[in-house]
Amino acid sequence: MKSRRLRPSLADNAVGYLFLAPWLIGFLGLTLYPMIQSLYYSFTQFDMMSPPEWVGFANYIKMFTADKTYMKSLQVTFTYVLWAVPLKLIFALLIAMLMNQKLRFIGLYRAVYYIPTLLGGSVAIAMLWKRLFSGDGAINTILRALGWANPPAWIANPNYALATLVLLTVWQFGSSMIIFLAGLKQIPDEYYEAASVDGAGPITKFFRITLPSLSPVILFNLVMQMISAFQAFTQAFIISAGKGGPLDSTMFYTLYLYTKGFYYYEMGYASAMAWVLLIIIGILTAIIFKSSNMWVSYGSGD
């Protein structure tokens, strides 16, 4: 027992590092080293045929001054993240509150609501979406029957293609819903009872009790969903047949990165793009965490 305070012995270290070895080798060889390498590539021109050629900041400068498609991909991705993430979280929270009741079949309901998340990332669903939201798709047949004479050809219309992808993302709110549900169950009933005694209505209760109590969970969901939204790829790739169209309206950041790196073999440029993405995500995550002092409450809980 007293050995707890002592420094780990040689034997402790041997066993510890034995178990850690796979992860440690993986981290050093497949994460850290490639990161350094891609940072180096980002300052080079590199096509995999010939060795990388040092070009300084040229890739970064070109990105922000001479590459319209790049700027477009930034715009598309930010628009996507700004819509998809908040909508998904709001939706997940509302549904979680609806599900947080003692109802018969509630287990079945939760399972059914998780199904879109279970399947949503697949190529099959992306292709289904493309078909459903095409000009002559089933959605438009329904809309016409409801009296909308000329609905847009969603997927094929540059004004709506991205919205269709946002919808597809929001549709997969299942994981966030389950995390919110777990959070809701932690809020003691006495809080709500005390508020009722004080005459608080459901809206006051929501803003004064539910939201503050859930704020750490919201923070967590927000950060994780934002990070994964910036990396969205499959859906845009399938729906636009790998081209990011129409008119680059679904040219997600990662799609453009893939195109540059593995279609045109501009590996240096693609590496620079990857690093800018890392920096963007890093800054946004830092901002969210910093701001969390103002809106996240880690209440005493009792």
């Binding site: 510890g16 891609s38 790196g261 690093w275």
Partner: peptide, 27 residues
């Protein structure tokens, strides 16, 4: 288990969950 630098490696492991995969894709 108990071993040297455990805290450091653990922190790195957590951070690596948040790392966008594209930084390592090309290398």
């Amino acid at each position: 288990l108990k071993f040297s630098l455990k805290g450091l490696w653990f922190g790195i492991m957590i951070l690596s969950i948040m790392l966008p995969t594209h930084v390592t894709t090309i290398p």
